[in-house]
Amino acid sequence: MHGLYNFVRGPLAWVAFILFVGGTLYRLIAMLVIARKKDNVVFDYFSLFYGLRSIFHWIIPFANRNSRQRPIFTIVTFAFHICLLAAPILLLAHVLLWDESFGISWWTLPEGVADIMTLIVIGGCIYFLWRRLTQPEVKFVTFASDFVILAIVAAPFITGFLAYHQWLGYKFWLILHILAGEVMLVAIPFTRLAHMIYSPFTRAYMGSEFGSVRHARDW
């Protein structure tokens, strides 16, 4: 087991993080370069104030009309995204790994809380899956890739949950968990999960256009 574990925990993790960070940087830089070259107006109308104003109205639940119109979705998606980001970053076991590898550590969530957050993420994925399967307006624009992406996101949490509870095959789930996490990291810059990278920019650009040019609100 040592060999396999050390491989996914070591070199593969390096690969995943390098691809994640490098891919993210690549996507960001590529976006800026192509914008400079072919969409220069984006910079000309960009306004930090109005960009942040817009982001602010969209990261607060119910601060924009659409989120008020769909309370259930809003609650689910906010809980999902908060847990999706917070649970892995503030998980004790993960922080111990950072500490072990690089001697850096930070505040961690109580494990019981992280456990619930994991369930929220998995629940969110199920909710999104349900929407994709049943809601006509979502179903119509759903591709196989959307299910794959959903699976990529759900996998680290499901395997992490199983590993944490050590029901059956702890090490199997643990290794699968690490692999799933690495797959997700790599997927972020190279799939539609890139909305994690791009959305602050698209939001801020629309906010800038609405705020400084149109003198209107975009929420």
Partner: peptide, 19 residues
């Protein structure tokens, strides 16, 4: 350029625009 590309890559097909 960037706008179209980013818009296409960012859209998560969530359908929230429908209403």
């Amino acid at each position: 350029g960037a706008r179209l590309k980013v818009y296409v890559d960012t859209c998560v097909h969530c359908g929230l625009c429908s209403d």
